[in-house]
């Protein structure tokens, strides 16, 4: 009897262990399955995802991937056209363009993700508080956002960059201001819609404080909007960064940025060495295209209501 009970307890324990283990194994399988379904339904989105992953790898392992340093001059290889030795050719300072593009991904990706993180966090704080509290606070915040939004973005960014001076961090700061202002509008709208639901009223009736309502009830429900906003915004930020670098307000040389590779010497020598101006543009277009396509596909899958928005 006693042995039986122990065996029973043991098997119960086993099955509990089994239960504890199973979700983990099936979670891995579920993720794989979800990814496979996503690839089947959105093939272009999946390919874009692969391009994005390739860019992330390039960013992390630039030293290993690039055959030369970004600022390394190669003897006797001035303005060589693309070929076996230098896949994308060399520039007027005898530097390997492929290597510079690999290092340039670091600038685009870092600025892209940092701006989205900072800008969206600010947008969420502004948008949720403005939509949740409403009233005079909302009115004042929205008039300020209005004023910001009636400026051409490039003018704001250029002025802010002129104030802060060039540099990676300053590019992130100036671009974040734009992301925060425009994003806060969308998040405010979503917050107002969520705040009207009965469960928010119920939470308030139960005596929840503002902080709890915002963090536990509102924020999780506007999270989809925030995620979609960030993926879709990434492409635009990479594009804006390249325009800024093109105008000479970006990351200072000799560190390569795709935008700055296109300006300056890229333009001076563009008739003699057109590849100097062609490849950085291809890199920008491909990166932005991949982020846009991925963002689009994610939006369709995560929130079909926002299709075409």
């Amino acid at each position: 009897m006693a042995g039986n009970a122990v065996a029973q307890a043991g098997s119960a324990l086993d099955s509990r262990r089994e239960l504890a283990r199973r979700p983990e194994r099936s979670r891995g399988a579920a993720i794989a399955r979800a990814l496979w379904l996503f690839a089947r339904r959105k093939p272009i989105g999946a390919i874009s995802g692969l391009i994005v992953i390739a860019m992330l790898v390039m960013t992390l392992f630039a030293e290993q991937i690039a055959p030369y340093g970004y600022d390394e001059t190669i003897r006797g290889a001035r303005m060589k056209p693309p070929g076996a030795a230098h896949w994308l050719g060399t520039d007027n300072l005898s530097r390997d363009i492929w290597s510079r593009i690999v290092y340039g991904a670091r600038v685009s990706i870092t600025i892209g993700f940092a701006t989205i993180a900072l800008g969206t966090a600010a947008a969420a704080a502004l948008g949720v508080s403005s939509g949740y509290f409403g009233g005079k606070y909302d009115l004042v915040v929205q008039r300020i956002v209005d004023a910001w939004m009636s400026f051409p973005y490039l003018v704001i960014i250029l002025s802010v960059m002129a104030v802060l001076g060039p540099g990676l961090l300053n590019v992130v700061l100036s671009l974040s201001i734009i992301v925060a202002a425009t994003g806060s509008r969308v998040i405010r709208g979503a917050t107002i819609a969520v705040a009207q639901h009965a469960y928010v009223e119920a939470a308030r009736a139960m005596g929840c404080g503002h902080a709890r309502i915002v963090l536990r009830h509102i924020l999780p429900n506007v999270a989809a909007t925030i995620i979609i906003l960030s993926t879709i915004g990434l492409g635009g930020i990479i594009l804006a960064e390249s325009a800024l670098s093109f105008l000479g307000f970006g990351v200072p040389p000799p560190y390569p940025s795709w935008g700055s590779m296109l300006s300056g010497s890229g333009r001076t020598y563009m008739y003699r060495a057109p590849w100097m101006a062609v490849w950085p543009g291809v890199a920008i277009s491909l990166a932005v295209f991949a982020f846009n396509m991925l963002g689009d596909a994610l939006r369709d899958v995560l929130d079909p209501r926002l299709r075409g928005a």
Partner: peptide, 17 residues
């Protein structure tokens, strides 16, 4: 989406070059 992704200043440069 391609049109949204190509930087205008690059396109302008190519059109000139």
């Amino acid at each position: 989406i391609l049109g949204l992704s190509v930087p205008g200043f690059w396109l302008a440069t190519l059109v000139i070059v």
